Amino acid sequence: MAEVKDAGHHLEEILVDGDHQKQIISTIAAIQDHPLMEISESPGHLLLLKLWQREEDLFGRRIARKETRMDTLRREIFQICLFFFMFQGFFSTILFTSSENNANSCQKWWIPMLVSLSSCCMMILLVEMKLCRYWKVYGQLQRERTDSRALTRCIQELRMKGASFDLSKEPVNGNRIKSSSVEIRWKPLTWCRRYLITICLVCVMGLAVPVCRFVSCA
Protein backbone atom coordinates (compact mmCIF):
# COMPACT_ATOMS: atom_id res chain seq x y z
CA MET A 1 0.00 0.00 0.00
CA ALA A 2 1.64 3.18 -1.20
CA GLU A 3 1.52 6.35 0.91
CA VAL A 4 1.96 9.75 -0.69
CA LYS A 5 3.53 12.44 1.49
CA ASP A 6 3.68 16.13 0.55
CA ALA A 7 6.89 17.54 2.03
CA GLY A 8 6.48 20.90 3.84
CA HIS A 9 2.66 20.92 3.66
CA HIS A 10 0.41 19.51 6.28
CA LEU A 11 -3.30 19.47 5.86
CA GLU A 12 -5.22 20.04 9.07
CA GLU A 13 -8.89 19.37 9.26
CA ILE A 14 -10.92 21.64 11.54
CA LEU A 15 -13.96 19.93 12.87
CA VAL A 16 -16.90 22.19 13.68
CA ASP A 17 -19.62 20.65 15.81
CA GLY A 18 -23.27 21.64 15.75
CA ASP A 19 -23.21 23.87 18.85
CA HIS A 20 -20.28 25.88 17.60
CA GLN A 21 -21.92 26.34 14.21
CA LYS A 22 -25.11 27.58 15.85
CA GLN A 23 -23.08 30.04 17.92
CA ILE A 24 -21.42 31.45 14.80
CA ILE A 25 -24.78 31.82 13.07
CA SER A 26 -26.31 33.58 16.08
CA THR A 27 -23.32 35.95 16.28
CA ILE A 28 -23.65 36.87 12.62
CA ALA A 29 -27.39 37.43 13.07
CA ALA A 30 -26.75 39.64 16.11
CA ILE A 31 -24.25 41.74 14.14
CA GLN A 32 -26.72 42.16 11.31
CA ASP A 33 -29.47 43.20 13.74
CA HIS A 34 -27.22 45.65 15.61
CA PRO A 35 -28.38 49.32 15.47
CA LEU A 36 -25.04 50.44 14.02
CA MET A 37 -25.47 47.96 11.19
CA GLU A 38 -28.96 49.34 10.58
CA ILE A 39 -27.55 52.87 10.54
CA SER A 40 -24.86 51.91 8.03
CA GLU A 41 -27.52 50.48 5.74
CA SER A 42 -29.71 53.61 5.99
CA PRO A 43 -28.23 56.60 4.10
CA GLY A 44 -30.35 59.12 6.01
CA HIS A 45 -29.42 57.84 9.46
CA LEU A 46 -25.76 57.46 8.50
CA LEU A 47 -25.59 61.02 7.20
CA LEU A 48 -27.31 62.35 10.33
CA LEU A 49 -24.86 60.46 12.57
CA LYS A 50 -21.86 61.87 10.70
CA LEU A 51 -23.24 65.42 10.84
CA TRP A 52 -23.92 65.19 14.57
CA GLN A 53 -20.49 63.71 15.26
CA ARG A 54 -18.86 66.55 13.34
CA GLU A 55 -20.95 69.09 15.24
CA GLU A 56 -20.00 67.42 18.52
CA ASP A 57 -16.33 67.78 17.62
CA LEU A 58 -16.87 71.48 16.84
CA PHE A 59 -18.57 71.94 20.22
CA GLY A 60 -15.54 70.42 21.94
CA ARG A 61 -13.14 72.77 20.15
CA ARG A 62 -15.21 75.87 20.92
CA ILE A 63 -15.51 74.87 24.57
CA ALA A 64 -11.73 74.41 24.82
CA ARG A 65 -11.10 77.84 23.27
CA LYS A 66 -13.54 79.55 25.65
CA GLU A 67 -12.00 77.85 28.68
CA THR A 68 -8.56 79.06 27.59
CA ARG A 69 -9.93 82.57 27.10
CA MET A 70 -11.44 82.55 30.60
CA ASP A 71 -8.12 81.49 32.14
CA THR A 72 -6.38 84.36 30.32
CA LEU A 73 -8.96 86.87 31.55
CA ARG A 74 -8.60 85.64 35.14
CA ARG A 75 -4.84 86.16 35.00
CA GLU A 76 -5.27 89.65 33.54
CA ILE A 77 -7.79 90.65 36.24
CA PHE A 78 -5.47 89.38 38.96
CA GLN A 79 -2.53 91.33 37.53
CA ILE A 80 -4.55 94.57 37.37
CA CYS A 81 -5.77 94.13 40.95
CA LEU A 82 -2.24 93.42 42.14
CA PHE A 83 -0.96 96.55 40.39
CA PHE A 84 -3.85 98.52 41.95
CA PHE A 85 -2.86 97.66 45.51
CA MET A 86 0.84 98.10 44.80
CA PHE A 87 0.13 101.56 43.41
CA GLN A 88 -1.89 102.51 46.48
CA GLY A 89 0.89 101.43 48.80
CA PHE A 90 3.61 103.12 46.76
CA PHE A 91 1.59 106.35 46.41
CA SER A 92 0.81 106.49 50.13
CA THR A 93 4.50 106.04 50.94
CA ILE A 94 5.54 108.87 48.61
CA LEU A 95 2.79 111.12 49.97
CA PHE A 96 3.83 110.48 53.56
CA THR A 97 7.48 111.16 52.78
CA SER A 98 6.78 114.39 50.91
CA SER A 99 4.40 115.70 53.59
CA GLU A 100 7.13 115.50 56.23
CA ASN A 101 9.39 117.80 54.21
CA ASN A 102 6.68 120.25 53.12
CA ALA A 103 4.82 122.33 55.68
CA ASN A 104 2.23 123.55 53.15
CA SER A 105 1.18 120.07 52.04
CA CYS A 106 -2.02 120.26 54.10
CA GLN A 107 -3.28 123.20 52.02
CA LYS A 108 -2.92 121.23 48.77
CA TRP A 109 -4.02 117.82 49.98
CA TRP A 110 -6.65 117.66 47.23
CA ILE A 111 -3.96 117.46 44.49
CA PRO A 112 -2.63 114.00 45.48
CA MET A 113 -6.22 112.98 46.18
CA LEU A 114 -7.21 113.77 42.57
CA VAL A 115 -4.16 111.93 41.25
CA SER A 116 -5.01 108.88 43.34
CA LEU A 117 -8.69 108.91 42.37
CA SER A 118 -7.97 109.31 38.65
CA SER A 119 -5.47 106.45 38.69
CA CYS A 120 -7.85 104.23 40.65
CA CYS A 121 -10.75 105.01 38.31
CA MET A 122 -8.66 104.04 35.30
CA MET A 123 -7.64 100.70 36.80
CA ILE A 124 -11.17 99.96 38.06
CA LEU A 125 -12.48 100.67 34.57
CA LEU A 126 -9.99 98.17 33.14
CA VAL A 127 -11.05 95.55 35.70
CA GLU A 128 -14.72 96.17 34.91
CA MET A 129 -14.10 95.72 31.18
CA LYS A 130 -12.26 92.46 31.83
CA LEU A 131 -15.03 91.24 34.14
CA CYS A 132 -17.74 92.02 31.61
CA ARG A 133 -15.81 90.11 28.98
CA TYR A 134 -15.19 87.23 31.40
CA TRP A 135 -18.86 86.78 32.30
CA LYS A 136 -19.87 87.09 28.67
CA VAL A 137 -17.51 84.26 27.74
CA TYR A 138 -18.76 82.34 30.80
CA GLY A 139 -22.36 82.58 29.57
CA GLN A 140 -21.33 81.45 26.09
CA LEU A 141 -19.40 78.54 27.61
CA GLN A 142 -22.42 77.40 29.62
CA ARG A 143 -24.63 77.48 26.54
CA GLU A 144 -22.04 75.55 24.54
CA ARG A 145 -21.82 72.91 27.26
CA THR A 146 -25.59 72.47 27.56
CA ASP A 147 -26.00 72.27 23.77
CA SER A 148 -23.14 69.76 23.61
CA ARG A 149 -24.77 67.57 26.27
CA ALA A 150 -28.09 67.67 24.41
CA LEU A 151 -26.36 66.69 21.18
CA THR A 152 -24.49 63.86 22.90
CA ARG A 153 -27.77 62.46 24.24
CA CYS A 154 -29.26 62.50 20.73
CA ILE A 155 -26.21 60.70 19.31
CA GLN A 156 -26.48 58.02 21.98
CA GLU A 157 -30.18 57.61 21.29
CA LEU A 158 -29.52 57.30 17.56
CA ARG A 159 -26.90 54.61 18.16
CA MET A 160 -29.27 52.69 20.40
CA LYS A 161 -32.39 52.85 18.22
CA GLY A 162 -30.74 52.48 14.83
CA ALA A 163 -33.07 52.75 11.84
CA SER A 164 -36.09 53.28 14.10
CA PHE A 165 -34.76 56.68 15.18
CA ASP A 166 -36.87 59.66 14.07
CA LEU A 167 -34.84 61.71 11.59
CA SER A 168 -36.89 64.84 12.29
CA LYS A 169 -35.76 64.95 15.93
CA GLU A 170 -33.39 67.77 16.88
CA PRO A 171 -31.26 68.30 20.00
CA VAL A 172 -33.30 70.32 22.49
CA ASN A 173 -32.06 71.54 25.84
CA GLY A 174 -34.87 71.75 28.35
CA ASN A 175 -32.80 73.13 31.21
CA ARG A 176 -32.01 76.49 29.59
CA ILE A 177 -35.42 78.07 30.30
CA LYS A 178 -35.34 76.87 33.88
CA SER A 179 -31.82 78.18 34.52
CA SER A 180 -32.61 81.56 32.94
CA SER A 181 -35.70 82.00 35.13
CA VAL A 182 -33.69 81.22 38.26
CA GLU A 183 -31.03 83.72 37.19
CA ILE A 184 -33.65 86.46 36.73
CA ARG A 185 -35.17 85.68 40.12
CA TRP A 186 -31.82 86.13 41.89
CA LYS A 187 -30.49 88.86 39.60
CA PRO A 188 -29.33 91.32 42.35
CA LEU A 189 -27.48 88.58 44.20
CA THR A 190 -25.97 87.32 40.95
CA TRP A 191 -24.81 90.81 40.01
CA CYS A 192 -23.13 91.33 43.41
CA ARG A 193 -21.40 87.97 43.16
CA ARG A 194 -20.13 88.64 39.66
CA TYR A 195 -18.81 92.13 40.32
CA LEU A 196 -17.56 91.65 43.87
CA ILE A 197 -14.02 92.54 42.79
CA THR A 198 -15.17 95.87 41.37
CA ILE A 199 -17.13 96.64 44.55
CA CYS A 200 -14.04 95.96 46.68
CA LEU A 201 -11.84 98.16 44.50
CA VAL A 202 -14.37 101.00 44.66
CA CYS A 203 -14.42 100.74 48.46
CA VAL A 204 -10.63 100.93 48.55
CA MET A 205 -10.73 103.93 46.22
CA GLY A 206 -13.22 105.60 48.57
CA LEU A 207 -10.58 105.49 51.28
CA ALA A 208 -8.25 107.61 49.14
CA VAL A 209 -9.91 110.88 50.19
CA PRO A 210 -9.54 110.49 54.00
CA VAL A 211 -6.12 108.86 53.64
CA CYS A 212 -4.75 111.73 51.54
CA ARG A 213 -6.20 114.29 53.95
CA PHE A 214 -4.83 112.48 57.00
CA VAL A 215 -1.35 111.85 55.58
CA SER A 216 -0.98 115.41 54.23
CA CYS A 217 -2.18 117.14 57.41
CA ALA A 218 -0.79 114.77 60.01
Rank of each mutant, 00 (worst) to 15 (best):
A2N: 12
E3S: 11
A7V: 14
L11D: 10
E13T: 14
I14N: 07
I14S: 03
I14H: 07
D17E: 08
D19S: 11
Q21L: 12
K22I: 06
I24A: 12
S26I: 02
I31V: 08
P35K: 03
M37W: 05
S40T: 04
G44I: 02
G44L: 04
L47D: 12
K50S: 08
L51A: 11
L51K: 15
E55N: 12
L58Y: 12
R62Y: 10
I63D: 01
R65E: 15
K66Y: 09
K66R: 14
T68H: 06
T68S: 12
L73A: 01
R74Q: 13
R75H: 11
R75I: 05
R75P: 00
E76F: 04
Q79C: 02
L82T: 15
F84H: 04
M86D: 13
F87L: 09
F87N: 06
Q88H: 09
Q88E: 13
F91M: 02
S92G: 04
L95Y: 02
L95D: 03
L95M: 08
T97E: 05
S99G: 04
E100W: 07
N101Q: 13
N101S: 13
N101I: 12
N102P: 02
N104Q: 07
C106T: 05
Q107P: 01
W109I: 02
W109D: 01
P112M: 03
M113F: 06
L114F: 12
V115M: 11
L117H: 02
S119D: 03
C120Q: 10
C121Q: 09
M122E: 09
M123T: 09
I124Q: 02
I124E: 03
I124V: 13
L126A: 13
L126N: 10
V127H: 03
V127I: 11
E128H: 14
K130W: 01
C132Q: 15
C132D: 14
R133H: 07
Y134H: 09
Y134T: 02
V137I: 15
G139S: 11
Q140A: 09
Q140F: 03
R143E: 11
E144Q: 11
R145K: 15
T146D: 08
D147P: 00
S148Q: 10
A150N: 08
A150K: 04
L151T: 05
C154D: 10
I155W: 02
I155N: 03
Q156H: 13
L158W: 01
M160C: 08
L167G: 05
E170W: 01
P171A: 04
G174Y: 10
R176H: 06
I177K: 15
S180W: 13
S180A: 15
S181N: 12
V182T: 11
V182D: 12
E183I: 02
E183W: 08
I184A: 11
W186R: 13
P188V: 08
P188C: 10
R193Q: 15
I199R: 11
V204C: 10
L207C: 12
V209H: 04
P210L: 07
P210C: 06
P210A: 06
C212K: 01
S216H: 05
